[in-house]
């Protein structure tokens, strides 16, 4: 299950009112996206889905020793989601429960291909092309930035591909962790290299 209410001030409302309002706002299609915090063995994940599909999976906080990463507190991350998807964001955990279930199965090693619909409409065309192609790199397999550049017909664009992956809004489900350096080196990962290694080990792509 995704997490319960993280805002203590809302406990001051009559029981159930907060949840009823959130459900009603979602049912009225008034949200740019619904969000929730999901559990994972790699730490909490912020999930957000638009009416078209899953549009954000982000690590909530960097792991110690993972090197400098942007401020990943829930507050800061919600601001980034708002810039990306629009400001009408409300936490509606029920809408993200299917994603949580798939993530649970993935981390248990039972799920190798995510079935949830992904919404990459917020990404510029080049990045979208990169991320769509990336979704065809199978579980447990790695590819290089150059491979991916060649697969989208721009063999000289390996560096630009790296930039597009670095801004992947849908971590894990759009598997940018499967892309490695030219000689198999683990290069940058927005969630920290430690998490990239853990994901590749889970998939059996690296010897533990």
């Amino acid at each position: 299950m995704t997490h319960a209410d993280p805002s203590p001030a809302l406990d001051l409302l009559p029981p159930g009112l907060d949840e009823r309002f959130r459900e009603r706002a979602a049912a009225a299609s008034l949200l740019d996206a619904a969000w929730a915090i999901a559990d994972s063995p790699l730490g909490p994940l912020l999930l957000a889905a638009t009416g078209r599909g899953l549009a954000w999976v982000g690590f909530e906080a960097p792991r110690a020793g993972s090197g400098p990463v942007a401020d990943a507190s829930p507050e800061a991350q919600l601001e980034r989601v708002a810039e990306w998807l629009g400001r009408r964001l409300l936490r509606v955990p029920r809408l993200l429960d299917p994603v949580q279930r798939e993530l649970d199965a993935y981390f248990a090693g039972r799920l190798h291909a995510f079935a949830v619909t992904v919404d990459l409409a917020g990404s510029p065309a080049f990045q979208r092309a990169v991320l769509e192609e990336l979704r065809s790199v199978p579980y447990g397999v790695t590819a290089t930035y150059g491979d991916l550049a060649a697969r989208i017909g721009k063999p000289k664009a390996a560096r630009a591909v790296g930039g597009a992956l670095n801004r992947n809004p849908v971590a894990i489900v759009v598997p940018c962790h499967r892309i490695v350096g030219a000689h198999g080196a683990l290069t940058g990962y927005a969630g920290g290299l430690e998490r990239k290694r853990a994901l590749l080990e889970l998939e059996g792509a690296l010897l533990a």
Binding site: S7, L10, E75, V81, R87
Partner: peptide
């Protein structure tokens, strides 16, 4: 700046109620 709606809502919901 205009905050994400979630923050606006959480900040003012108790007083509105």
């Amino acid at each position: 700046a205009i905050p994400p709606f979630e923050r606006f809502y959480a900040a003012h919901a108790p007083e509105v109620y």
